[in-house]
Simulated scan of single mutants.
Amino acid sequence: MPHIVNLLCILLLACLSPLAQGERLRLVTDDWAPYVYRDAGQTKGIDYEVTTEVLKRLGIEVEWQFLPWKRCLAMIEHGQADGVMDIFMVESRKAYLVYPLEPMSDVEFVLYQSSRQRHAIHQLSDLTGLTVGTSPGYAYGAEFTDAPGFRREAAPSHEANFGKLKLGRIDLLVTDRLVGRYLRRQLGLEQQVEELPLVISRQAQYLGLARKPGREELAQAFSAELRRFKQEPSYLAIIERYIGDTSHLPDAVEQQESSTPR
């Protein structure tokens, strides 16, 4: 099977236009740690490192630009960028975006609670009477949004939500699983904050390429090489560097900005 995958990659690369190989892609995104973010002026993140490595193997350099999410979408829609990182596959966007078949990452929205004040949460109805910390501009799925009986309280940042949870000002918080694990580790709260197994919602996020000549072939080559890279130890090593645990790699969810799917 590995030989077949290698042959497929070679054939796809051969199909790429001469301009595609050796070109420089301008990718836009916003801060979404630990997937892609800026730290002390340096670009970091799981999907950043994976994308950079995969495109390097395809002979393509990358220029990254961080902007508010709505600006990212506007730029890609109007052809002002070559691609956008960690975006939902939305049918209406296929008019101007080409999606590789392989997603960048599978993420999930889950709940976190204080170790000092535990709650038995097995379904959304168990949240009745509780206050759940959320982030403004994020969509957690209709089931969570429309569920009655509990209060949703927005905070200006993920870090602020963890602070409120630590102080007992909220009962739980909801965030992406890897984002929560990353922040819990960064904030030194691994012994004070627990992750609950209930999955609020899930969805895949992709590298979206601007629809231009040769991009369909590039998307296929990228997808094939990404699948191959995910089978290598170096892929898990990247994830471990950011979250320290790969025992429960999640399925999928994505950040969204108010009424604007990511």
Rank of each mutant, 00 (worst) to 15 (best):
I243N: 03
E102S: 03
E159R: 13
A155K: 03
Y138H: 15
F66D: 02
W32L: 11
W69L: 09
M89R: 08
F66G: 06
L101G: 14
L173K: 11
D251S: 00
Q255V: 04
T145P: 00
R24S: 06
S92H: 09
G208V: 13
E49C: 11
G208F: 00
A139R: 13
T29K: 10
L130D: 05
A219M: 14
F66R: 04
N6P: 03
G45H: 15
C9V: 15
P68C: 12
S115K: 13
R181I: 05
R228Y: 02
V132F: 08
V50G: 06
A224H: 04
M104S: 10
G133R: 10
Q255R: 01
T246N: 05
T145G: 01
R211Y: 15
W32D: 01
R118I: 05
G244P: 00
S125R: 09
W69E: 13
V253Y: 12
L58S: 05
I4A: 08
G188T: 12
A221N: 13
E153T: 03
V110E: 04
V98N: 04
E77D: 14
R116E: 02
T29L: 02
V179E: 07
R57C: 01
A252G: 14
M1H: 14
E194T: 12
P148E: 11
R71L: 07
S223M: 12
I10Y: 05
I121Q: 04
L172M: 10
G188K: 07
H78F: 09
R26T: 07
